[in-house]
Design a protein around this nucleic acid. Structure first.
Lengths: 191, 191
DNA sequence: GACATTTTTGACACCGAGTGCTATAAGTCC
DNA sequence: GGACTTATAGCACTCGGTGTCAAAAATGTC
């Protein structure tokens, strides 16, 4: 196949092993060396697959954003806030099989201060997808206050929904997201 | 006065020295030892005044929240979103003399990934003030989706305004906050 | 099969943030 | 002066993260 020494593992494998350890012992109580040892690689090698311990939990976030971008583009004919709501809801639909893993991940993120803090950096990219889309639709520059506020507020709405979902497993993510964005669209008046 | 060895410095002094160093050399390039040395105390001692390097920049945040709580309570007779907007705007009014310092601080926070991430943790408390107030007004539990979404979205609106202010020094903070929250109240329709 | 080339690996040394522990400094009170 | 109280600073340690470099493991060529 390709030239050179073949990689001895994959991002996915490390992620899976790490997720299991984190869920079992806790994020802080698990050292990077523990994870590397469990995967069977050196600590230094793990840091070539992931930029930081925090980043291990954020698998393929680029893909999520690409999905969001496409989902937003589909609502071209709809009013702004309706397109936004549908875009966010649709881009966050997952097959039932993936939900438990997603929940574990989100529970770790929302329950670990270091991860919660780190998530801000990842979400910055998400916000800029929304801001660019909104700017385009409104004929405003991306850095204008309106698209920026909308992007920040949207992220807030999505986070509130996800957090609620983590704490209330019986409720439905898509439904929570939908409700959250409906409120946003009415300016928090009764719907 | 009080019994025991007197403290050799104060939080305010450390904060002032640190802010100057951070602004001059950058946050990452300044070590805790640099700050401690400049203040004339040991590294270990600095960590008794502040829980972490990140926390040095967040002086008296409890006071900000208390102010927000009071400002929100004052809008009892107003409609929800108007009370919210006024509360946030009023609790963020500063005398002109304090604005440059505030801007330096906000510029460091929004421009340094580690600080930006850390701010999330501080803002969680701010959000819960809003969520509790909103829950009370709406007759809903604090952890209900509506107050939570409102709190997250409010924080988003405030952050968008502050960030805009940092990048555009000529604009007025109060005015930006006001505009931001007006958009939120109309569900992002034309005002 | 020996050899050059390419890529990944992992060991080592190092830095900075943060913590537990402890002896000591610097006050007050009697 | 001595008992007591509180703050300080030094030390050793853990952990996350990085730079460097020799060795490992594959491919292709003669």
């Amino acid at each position: 196949m390709s030239i050179g020494r073949p990689p001895s593992t994959t991002r996915d494998e490390i992620e899976a092993v790490a997720l299991a350890l984190f869920a079992e012992r806790g994020f802080e109580a698990t050292t990077v060396e523990d994870v590397a040892g469990a995967v069977g690689i050196g600590r230094r090698t793990l840091f070539r697959y992931f930029a930081s311990k925090n980043d291990i939990l954020w698998g393929d976030f680029d893909w999520v954003m690409e999905r969001l971008r496409e989902a937003l583009a589909e609502g071209d004919e709809l009013p702004l806030m309706e397109a936004l709501r549908r875009g966010v809801v649709e881009s966050n639909r997952y097959p039932d099989g993936q939900l438990p893993g997603l929940r574990t991940r989100m529970a770790l993120i929302t329950g670990t201060p270091a991860l919660e803090a780190h998530s801000t950096l990842r979400y910055a990219a998400w916000r800029s997808v929304v801001a660019e889309w909104a700017g385009g639709r409104l004929g405003l520059p991306t850095d204008d206050l309106v698209p920026q506020t909308l992007a920040h507020a949207s992220l807030g709405a999505a986070m509130a929904a996800f957090r609620r979902w983590v704490d209330h497993p019986d409720e439905d993510v898509s439904d929570l997201l939908d409700k959250s964005f409906r409120r946003l669209a009415t300016g928090f008046a009764e719907p």
